[in-house]
Design a protein around this nucleic acid. Structure first.
Length: 601
RNA sequence: GCGCCGGUGGUCUAGUGGUAGGACCUGAGCCUUCCAAGCUCAUGGCCCGGGUUCAAAUCCCGGCCGGCGCACCA
């Protein structure tokens, strides 16, 4: 941890951005509170995300429960993936997957499904040793290691459930209804912003690894055969790419190129992933991520998740400029193929496919049967249904079997004969207008808390203003040449800053306070997030707002009482301009949108 | 989960076997006509449990929490 990080954390606590939860009871690891400033900042980041990845893309957003029943996670693979057996070597401290040890050193396969006591016995009997240092592992306890938070749905334990480890499953599980909503047409995207839960072994670094965290995930369902992303829209976006090949190479380094070049040179293999890397890069910049401390890194093969075909992470260096980089994964861009929908289709009762209509219907000749059950029933009793199924299968497989007067089928090893006339055998031409396909999924998955932290870290600045202000009165400059003015600033983009404008009376007397409160109230009515502060000197109040990233400060002074004008002060430059109250709200709107700056006023 | 280090007002910190000071912040008042000025006053603290001791915030043990390293990270 750099000094910078410590000071940012201190600021976050003191000014209400984020802090550890339940400290009154000793605290609990991995759970954080967003204070008044932080909650608004996070909300603003999420709104900016919705604006770009839902609204602008024409996608839809849903909100699904955080608790889902166990079978969901049997299908998704999370139950197996989470339920690891961990065995720690008493000598060297290395942790091993107990099931892997058993599989590697015995004839046993699928050791994962063996109960833990038996695994411990097997390890003792087979005299397994630590693969790292050779120490005998007999008698060492095997621990269950489950990263999902479990719970019970309703009374008793007959209906186990889990807190979702990613918001994505809430989308996949509801795919059958969502596709109806989308009227069966690909492509479409479904997003979800909300909490997910992982019972991390060791939560670390404040907001960076939490047990309850917020995700903003987009599941973009596409037809892999025909759907193409609008790559042209982002082909000129410059991105810094750290490919798997570069990571493996000696002296390999990230490369900067346009998205178009990266696709042309096959650095990024999926056009869809490339598209979202381009879109996201501009979005990160928009919310205040410093592009000099940002890169995309490709997962190498060993890192790929069980579902992912190709995956790039957005990474941010959250240390101060010039410090040893500390790269944190803030988003995963994965091409998940049809993994999720196929699995749910397999395990669940409903249909997780889309009917894809052919351009022109095709005609196929098909052999069918329509058995006369009033004959089969009396003839074969309980086997009648099996006979009918066998006839149907036979018709598909070998229509020549129906050419004689009788046809024989095999049911449970018994050969049964049916007159062909009772089978309803026919060869028909049927028209097929399409086929059922399982859509592929492109998934940009954003870690909101890590992004909020990155934005704070990249906005944080300790600034030496040099000799005291040169703006207003010339005398200040002359007498302050021996002491430097310092300040701490969060240069948050106005769009995400918790407060857009702060209103002060220059003095809290002579009616200035009352006038300033009116101005604050008018701005609130006009839709701004407004802070009001009358305490301490004017300079102290500017510094307070600098520390929480408020981009604009409005001061009511004695001239205001005369001519209904106020000063507007810019956080980053500390420049000031005089603005009439009648146009204040309009001016602030253009300032917030970045269309003008205070020095232009 | 293991190892090392740590835990004192809101924040940052000093400190001793006899229950604690500072700085900043915050609040009230005075002063002050635009960038952390000054003065007065005020609020507020030894992580939790057990042990040793006449006496523990201080020493010991355990827990919780944090930082770092290892392991883990679908």
């Amino acid at each position: 941890m750099t000094d910078n990080t410590a000071r940012l954390t201190e600021l976050a606590k003191r000014r209400g951005f984020f802090f550890q939860s339940s400290e009154a009871y000793g605290g609990v690891a991995g759970f954080y509170v967003y204070g008044p400033e932080g909650a608004t900042l996070k909300e603003n980041v999420q709104d900016a995300w919705r604006d770009r990845f839902v609204r602008r893309e024409g996608h839809m957003e849903i909100e699904s429960p955080t608790v889902m029943p166990e079978p969901v996670f049997e299908a998704s693979g999370h139950l197996d993936g989470f339920d690891d057996m961990i065995l720690e070597c008493p000598e060297c401290g290395t942790s091993h997957r107990a099931d892997h040890l058993v599989e590697d050193n015995t004839d046993i396969e699928e050791a994962e499904s063996i109960p833990i006591p038996e695994v411990e016995e097997i390890i003792a009997e087979a005299e397994l040793v630590c693969p790292t240092c050779g120490t005998d592992l007999a008698g060492e306890p095997v621990d269950d290691f489950n990263l999902m938070f479990g719970t019970n749905i309703g009374p008793g334990s007959s209906s186990p459930g889990y807190l979702r480890p990613e918001t994505a499953q809430g989308i996949f599980v509801e795919f059958p209804r969502l596709k109806e909503y989308a009227r069966g047409q690909l492509p479409f995207g479904v997003a979800q912003v909300g909490p997910a839960y992982r019972n991390e072994i060791s939560p670390r670094k404040g907001l960076i690894r939490l047990r309850e965290f917020a995700q903003a995930e987009l599941e973009h369902f596409i037809d892999p055969e025909t759907d193409e992303p609008p790559l042209a829209e982002v082909e000129d976006v410059e991105v810094t790419l750290y490919s798997a090949a570069e990571q493996d190479a000696d002296g390999g380094a990230p490369q900067t190129m346009t998205v178009g070049e990266a696709v042309a040179e096959d650095v990024i293999t999926s056009d869809w992933v490339a598209y979202y890397l381009g879109v996201a890069k501009d979005w990160y910049a928009r919310i205040g991520v410093d592009m000099d401390r940002f890169r995309y890194r490709q997962h190498n093969e060993g890192e790929l998740a069980h579902y992912a075909a190709d995956c790039w992470d957005a990474e941010a260096d959250v240390t101060a400029p010039g410090a040893e980089p500390d790269w944190v994964e803030i988003t995963g861009f994965a091409y998940r193929g049809d993994y999720d929908l196929s699995k749910h289709g397999e395990y669940a009762d409903e249909d997780f496919t889309i009917f894809k209509q052919y351009d022109d219907p095709i005609t196929v000749e098909r052999a069918t049967v329509d058995p006369d059950m009033s004959y089969l029933g009396p003839e074969f009793g309980g086997d009648a249904a099996a006979v009918a199924d066998a006839l149907e299968a036979l018709a598909e497989r070998d229509r020549s079997a129906f050419e004689g007067d009788e046809v024989s089928v095999d049911v449970d090893g018994e050969e049964l004969t049916v007159p062909v006339e009772k089978t309803g055998f026919a060869v028909e031409e049927t028209t097929e207008s399409g086929e059922h396909i399982t859509p592929h999924v492109v998934e940009p998955s954003f870690g909101v808390d890590r992004i909020v932290y990155t934005v704070l870290a990249h906005s944080y600045r300790e600034e030496d203003l040099g000799e005291a202000s040169e703006d207003a009165s010339g005398e200040a400059a002359s007498e302050a040449d021996d002491e430097d003015e310092e300040r701490t600033v969060l240069s948050l983009p106005p769009e995400v800053a918790p407060k857009t404008v702060a209103v002060f009376p220059l003095m809290d007397k002579d009616g200035l306070g009352e006038r300033a409160r009116e101005v604050a109230d008018e701005l609130r009515a006009a839709g701004f997030e407004v802070a009001y502060d009358a305490s301490g000197s004017i300079g102290r109040r500017y510094r307070r707002q600098d520390e929480v990233g408020t981009p604009f400060c409005v001061t009511v002074d004695y001239d205001t009482l005369e001519d209904d004008s106020v000063t507007v002060r810019d956080r980053d430059s500390t420049a000031q301009a005089r603005v009439g109250l009648d146009e204040l709200a309009t001016r602030l709107r253009t300032l917030r949108a970045g269309e003008t700056s205070v020095s232009d006023l």
